[in-house]
Design a protein around this nucleic acid. Structure first.
Lengths: 225, 225
DNA sequence: TGCGCGGGCTGACATTCGTCAGGTTTTCGG
DNA sequence: CCGAAAACCTGACGAATGTCAGCCCGCGCA
């Protein structure tokens, strides 16, 4: 039987977003089986990475939790790092993970606070796991992947910064909008992460308070202009 | 020569803050030498933990970077986890690491924004490494240590929440002040962490924008009461 | 009924890890 | 200048890790 051989697919430029390359494997041929096994593997790995960290999670752990055999697992993923990359693609680069600047642009006449509230509501839960994974796993990512993440982050930042300038009537390139954009991005990303301390507060209350607070920050910045 | 034997000192309740217990070692007797070596070790370990993560940093790495021998290192620290605990004590539990509620209480008549700005300015750089280390190392901390961190975080949160209620004229226990306190804490903690994207913006500008923004958030919350 | 092939699995490899016993070198008071 | 105490280091042990070669089984087709 043909033994494992993996090639790397180049980043899918088509989607417009940079994507981390996922290895291609040619041992198992049933495509739907591959999909199903990969889902098992990635789900188990995500749980374990969040619980024990990437480096302390062993392939054996992942196999035990996902029910895939220690040898077979290499028919579905190329190596441990490949699992991480697949997770990052799902949780960070996925096109159906909404971004704030995109939502702002899509609805330029809606009030900032309303868009923000909608964005937060949609991404709150989804983002929690992704953000934790990303910021914990930075040291274990390949330099190339780290660069991809930074590129995306910078683009997002510039985009939001421009939107804020426009809405607040500030000149483009004002450093304050950049800082503000930075704050907003990391606020909406890390906010969910912090709720391990606030489990007893209703999600809706949290979203409302955050949205109102951020809107106030932006308004204050605009009136100081 | 007396061989290594470590006992654990109980948390130093005296300081009022919970502190992670550090192992006591009795091999080397020159106390100032111990201090110096420990500093070398901890500094090297901090750099490496931040760069490669706790689990992927080996004792051998730490020895190479600090110049301490692989065997001798166990004359100064009990084990790898003991190094982490010592770092957390320095960077997270240290009494000269300022906290916002303490500064607010110390100066109850000063305007919120001014205190906030002072707090941010004092803690911005110091906090960066500590926060990164803490949030990345959670999976590798002993459950007991994790609990200590959570206790401290909850206390800080409740403290700030109460201060905010008082200053904003909201009833104590209003969930919005808790969310707001949470936001502020993680904002001032994670803010510095994000500046890998914003190295080109002046620190002073950043602090001012953050302080003004947070103050606006709080004001908005107060006027909605 | 026999056979080929897709997929599962046992068992093991080369490394690397944290840790330390015990010998070797340095230091320094007398 | 000596000898003991203090500090340093060589070398190794057992355990755990990522990875995979190669064998096994069972299903569907002839």
């Amino acid at each position: 039987m043909a033994k494992r051989q993996g090639g790397a697919t180049p980043p899918a430029e088509a989607a417009g977003e940079p994507t981390l390359s996922e290895a291609e494997l040619t041992v198992v041929q049933n495509e739907t089986l591959i999909q199903r096994r990969r889902e098992q593997i990635c789900q188990a790995a995500l749980d374990l990475f969040l619980e024990k960290g990437f480096a302390s999670t062993t392939i054996r752990d992942i196999c035990a939790k996902s029910g895939v055999n220690q040898a077979s697992i290499y028919d579905y993923i190329a190596n441990k790092n490949d699992i991480l990359r697949r997770l990052l693609n799902q949780l960070w680069f996925s096109p159906d993970m909404p971004t704030l600047p995109a939502m702002l642009r899509a609805d330029p006449d809606a009030p900032f606070e309303a868009v923000l509230r909608r964005y937060l509501r949609e991404s709150w839960v989804k983002k929690r796991q992704g953000t934790l994974l990303v910021y914990r796993s930075v040291p274990h990512m390949l330099e190339e992947d780290r660069r991809a993440m930074r590129v995306r982050d910078k683009a997002l930042l510039a985009d939001l910064s421009a939107q804020l300038s426009a809405r607040a009537g500030l000149p483009e390139g004002d450093p304050r909008t950049e800082v503000m954009a930075n704050l907003i991005i990391f606020m909406s990303a890390f906010g969910p992460m912090r709720d391990w301390l606030t489990r007893d507060v209703e999600e809706e209350v949290m979203v409302d308070v955050v949205a109102a607070g951020v809107a106030a920050m932006v308004a204050r910045m605009a009136e100081q202009a």
